[in-house]
Write a protein that binds this DNA or RNA. Structure first.
Length: 495
RNA sequence: GUCCCCUUCGUCUAGAGGCCUAGGACACCUGGUUUUCAUCCAGGCAACAGGGGUUCGACUCCCCUAGGGGACGCCA
């Protein structure tokens, strides 16, 4: 059988290193066995999915060299490769399950479900649909459907027994059916949920091996059951360990930069980042730590994957990057890479308007603009001494609120960043000057610098957010207790 | 709370019953090369979570405990 794998990102945000991690292993397995690696866009969440996010994710994966054999941009024999373009496909499958008696219409309101789950959890039970709408008669269902009552389609799940999940890495995993919820398959808006779409698409696209994060183990029984209902052959399951923050929690942008673009902005080489991801949870037979994507594919053996969840260690990534840079690039090539990265005419033309009025001779250009080419700035508490009108706690509050706003911000033009801060200052009833003072330190490292919003715009969302987070950390970070308090204030702010 | 997964130096890992006095790498420390720094080289510190089995023999197999993580959405 042909080995076909897929990575299926959801275009709802920044390109995540975890997506690249899965793409790397999917690609390695497929290509090692002469098969194909597919990229599919899972945009069944119509509210959160955006075309921009999709474009950025595709670009990032390409930048890393993790290109695919079939996908939304290049097509292929199993297209389309975007679930929103396949929307018409899923309804009939849901209808088939209803006709077979393996699924049913559900008219329960979200309120009732929330209440039901809360009660179940309170009683120490697993939250699970209680089967309320399964008892509806055919006539009742028909009349409600005719009356256009909002509804979903749910799959039926056995009450008793055990599901055996075969995982290539972990062997047999037993999960009781009583633990499995009667998953919604079709949403009120007519879109399939991930669970239906993934099964239908993986089957239609002839995916042979599903490589995904460990977080999916618990929903494997739902998928296995759907394959059974449809009478389709079950692909092999490979659940990879999850990448971790230094504190061992699941890698998250709150604690560690997760956007691929951040690493690009920092000036990492794509080869080094891919190499680093490859050595998390996997190793070359000879123990060599520096290897190219091609070398990894050639040597790839799924049995060399280790299951302990690896901590993403930027220090080691940096060391590896240094090796790639020194060992693989001639001075000439390095010069080209630097130009490509930031030292180009285009970037320069964006910087010059910010500094022209502030320099008299060329030799002043570098000192005033270094922060635009820097990574994480060398900050400590004393860096914020110049912030006079705010108490230390207020400085933290401003930075944290700004960070939250910036995380939600999509338009990264200087003008809309300006508006963001004007609004924040108004809502806080602070002077804009006082709100901006800590921001200047966070972004440029100094109390005075070229225009803040233009600088932020130039640095881009990933680097800007990382700097604000870094500033917060250099002030001792925000404790859980503080965070809770701030969050409360922040929510109150919006209303 | 319920269920599931995981567990070798601080971190990434090698290890598929005797080759383990547990190897490598990052970080850290020491020394050498270098006008300084970095690179590079040499050396050092440092781990099989705990307890029971199985076995002539357990880092490796089984069980229990502990710790960590994840899942419990009309998100993926």
């Amino acid at each position: 059988m042909k080995v076909r794998t897929r990575v299926a990102p959801s275009p709802t945000g920044d390109p995540h290193v975890g997506t690249a991690y899965m793409a790397l292993f999917c690609r390695a397995l497929a290509h090692k066995h002469g098969g194909e690696f597919v990229l599919r866009i899972e945009d069944t969440d119509a509210v959160r999915s955006t075309a921009e996010s999709e474009a950025v994710i595709l670009d990032s994966l390409k930048w890393l060299g993790l290109d695919w054999d079939e996908g939304p941009d290049c097509g292929g024999p199993h297209g389309p490769y975007r679930q929103s373009d396949r929307k018409h496909l899923y309804g009939p499958y849901a209808a088939q399950l209803i006709a077979q008696g393996d699924a049913f219409h559900c008219f329960c309101t979200p309120e009732r479900l929330t209440e039901m789950r809360a009660e179940q959890m309170k009683a120490g039970k697993t939250a699970r649909y209680d089967g309320h709408c399964m008892s509806l008669s055919a006539e009742e269902v028909k009349s409600r459907l005719d009356g256009n009552t909002p509804h979903v389609v749910r799959m039926k799940v056995p009450e008793e027994g055990t599901c055996l999940v075969q995982d290539k890495l972990r062997g047999e995993i037993e999960i009781d059916w009583s633990q499995i919820d009667m998953q919604v398959l079709m949403k009120t808006d007519g879109n399939p949920t991930y669970h239906l779409a993934v099964v239908v698409d993986d089957h239609l696209m002839e995916i042979s091996h599903i490589i995904r994060g460990e977080e999916w183990i618990n929903s494997a029984p739902k998928h296995i059951l759907l394959y059974k209902y449809f009478g389709w052959p079950m692909p092999e399951l490979v659940h990879m360990p999850l990448l971790r923050n230094p504190d061992k929690s699941k890698l998250s942008k709150r604690k560690n930069p997760t956007s691929i673009n951040f690493y690009k902005d920092m000036g990492f080489l794509p080869e080094a980042l891919v190499n680093y991801l490859g050595m998390l949870g996997w190793s070359m037979p000879d123990g060599e730590e520096k290897f190219s994507l091609e070398q990894m594919v050639n040597q790839f053996d799924i049995n060399r994957i280790s299951l302990g969840a690896p901590v993403f260690d930027m220090e080691k990534l940096k060391w590896l990057n240094g090796r790639w840079l020194r060992e693989e690039l001639s001075d000439d090539q390095l010069a080209d890479k630097l130009i490509e990265w930031s030292f180009n005419r285009e970037t320069l033309l964006q910087v010059i308007p910010l500094i022209k009025e502030r320099v008299d001779v060329f030799s002043e250009v570098a000192p005033i603009s270094t922060f635009l080419f820097d990574g994480m700035l060398a900050l400590d508490e004393s860096s914020f001494d110049g912030v006079k009108n705010l108490e230390p706690d207020q400085v933290k509050l401003v930075l944290q609120f700004a960070l939250w706003r910036l995380e939600a911000q999509r338009d990264w033009s200087a003008e809309s960043l300006n508006q963001l801060f004007v609004q924040l200052a108004e809502q806080l009833d602070y002077k804009i000057r006082d709100v901006l003072a800590p921001m200047f330190i966070a972004i440029s490292g100094k109390p005075v610098s070229p225009p803040l919003f233009d600088s932020m715009s130039l640095l881009g969302p990933d680097m800007t957010r990382a700097r604000v987070r870094h500033a917060l950390n250099s002030l001792g970070g925000v404790s859980k207790k503080q965070l809770k308090k701030l969050d409360k204030q922040y929510v109150a702010l919006a209303n």
